[in-house]
Design a protein around this nucleic acid. Sequence first.
DNA 1: AATAATAACGTTTTT
DNA 2: CGTTATTATT
Length: 788
Amino acid sequence: MPDLLANLNPEQLAAVTLPNEPALILAGAGSGKTRVLITRIAWLIQHGYASPPTVLAVTFTNKAAREMMARLSALLPIDTRGMWIGTFHGLCNRMLRAHYRDAGLPQTFQILDTADQLSALKRLMKGLNIDDEKYPAKNLQYFVNNAKEQGLRPKDVDATDNFNRKFVELYDAYEQQCQREGVVDFPELLLRCYELLAHNPPLRAHYQARFRHILVDEFQDTNKLQYAWLKLLAGEHNAIFAVGDDDQSIYAFRGANVGNMRDFEQEFQVRHLIKLEQNYRSHGYILDAANQLIAHNARRLGKNLRTDAGHGEPVRVYEAATDTQEASWIVEEIRALINTGLSRGEIAVLYRSNAQSRAIEHTLVNVGIPYRVYGGLRFFERQEVKHALAYLRLIDNPNDDTAFARVVNFPVRGIGARSIEQLADAARLYNCSLAAAIPYVTGKAGSSLGAFANLIAKLRAQTQQMSLPETVEYVVRGSGLADFYQNEREGQDRLENLQELVNAASAFVSEEGYGLDTPARAIALRPGATAAPELTVVSDDPGSVVLDAASPADLAQNPDTMTPLAGFLSHASLEAGDNQAQAGQDAVQLMTVHSAKGLEFTAVFITGLEEGLFPHENSAMEADGLEEERRLMYVAITRAKERLYLSFAQSRMLHGQTRYNVRSRFFDELPQDTLKWLTPKAEAGARWGGRSDNAGWGRDWFGRPGREGRYDGHEAGAAAAPLPAFANEQRAVDTGFRVGQQVFHTKFGEGTITALEGGGADGKAQVRFKRHGEKWLALAVAKLQAVE
DNA sequence: AATAATAACGTTTTT
DNA sequence: CGTTATTATT
């Protein structure tokens, strides 16, 4: 029997071994939060306090859920399948699939992602002739999601003015549309599930009796609805083990309510509040910086991180003249770090907003350092993948108008905008789906639409007995998507992605434990299940639970009534897949501070620390805005293990305009003895303000900064490299390249200069590249970068 | 119906 | 400035 409790510190030990009562674990950054959560589950099971089916653990991201699952099974040889471990949305989806009838949904209901939802709203508004100028669909989307997250249906929303009354009206119409189509959006998954439990006492009792152990990760990120859902599941007797950190609450803008922590403490009369303050990640100075910064926030639950590691290196601060120069400095430091043997993947560059990545990427490309930018298009969000999924959705649920509208004319089959408008009119008239309205459209448009309907029907019939991967492959071909991208000039990547979709279907089938030959649209029993599980509560007799082909035990073990196809479509909506561009390679990590939450790196650069940018100017308008920015900075600082670099630029190109910024106020909130200014620290009074009447100083600065006291290269390699810090600017002055010099080119990579011609603006260089042979390049055009 | 021109927009993001 | 959505043009 493994000793789970070995190497836990006293606080962690106390948390892991708490009695089954409501508990709040205030887990600081790098304090072993996930470990505590996992060990708690393992410990409960090892000691017989819990069996797997009584455990429900909920996270915000699929990644966190997967990690929990993986680490748990590594810790204990237990069957994690009986446990419910997943995201809020994933678990709600699971419950709604198991009780679709009680939830008032069709068995094949589809999930709209954010983009689908927006297009559904646009379609709705177009049909109602709503002026998009006056009532933007985007705003309605926000309105609807916000209402749902407050648990409000249209009838519950208090509309004070005509504008809001219109939104409520549209919210109502949208709900009807979704219901008719058999689709649910993200917040609807949660609200439906909440209502399912709230309005169905026997069902609620069933799950309350089952989930005796509820564990919540990142509790500070829960919204009102998620909190209400948890409360409902916990009932009177179940304990919630909530783990979170109010200082890392950075998602208020998407509805997260830190107040849930205080509410939880009071409403559940929490007697066990444990603070995990021992940090296992960062060196001392870094923690000092984090602690002192966050101390400037009011209304904290209160926490101070400590470490056994020494002070470590001081926090380095760099003031650049421009954003370009800031990028050059960062890249030079990165090179120095790599030279000391640090791997690229251990270095992260963080920024407040995505737009800032451009300058840094550009410089990294010039120097030839591999990097990876987080964020961007994810696999299931690619247009070709969404098209293929739309066909699959139509096969499962012909009423899904969002899917229908997406592919009715893709690949093009002569169904233009006016045909679709005709069809939409008919659908509205007969209050039916677009697909069902096809017979009502006459003429040429009608026959084209009829052909499309036949195509879908054919795909549906022919894939009837096929497995999921076969179905996906058949649909990719049968829909004409494969041919379309085959003939498209730039279609090869898209074609590969469609093949990848087939692979994803295979992977899904085996990971979920379906037999490889299981028909994609048959309810399949997983290994160990004895019957198709469905628990149905007869609504006109709320006191009785009628079992539909399953015993409660079966349901407890195996609540899935999803067909492989429905499961796969859910998976595609709920887990959009990786968004990493060049995964696998050892690369410097570029990301927003938000994306960095939960990660750690040996060396971290926090960039663009300027008033207006970080803290962001928009935060000044929001209640609690500055405090949230400060928490964001806190998250950024605590990502660093050994080296932390802070930088800012006096001028920065933003939205096509040069802006002059003042250094961030956060510098004044950090303990000065932990900071090492690589550039002289300007006193607050002597610094230029960010006002436009300071335009003159920019010119002065663009000449040459005074050299005295100026940071002239990283300390580590100061002897070796004379002036890497300002390589870009100085090259502009003397244009000096020499034959034999090593250079980098954005496109061609590394090379050696073999000849030089002319000078000044029309200078040319012949460069022999390692991969691309010899080329003549105009120095004014080619951005050659000198290499040491 | 595909392509070109123009306008609009610009904080953070998972499900 | 650079991207994306919409509109105009052929």
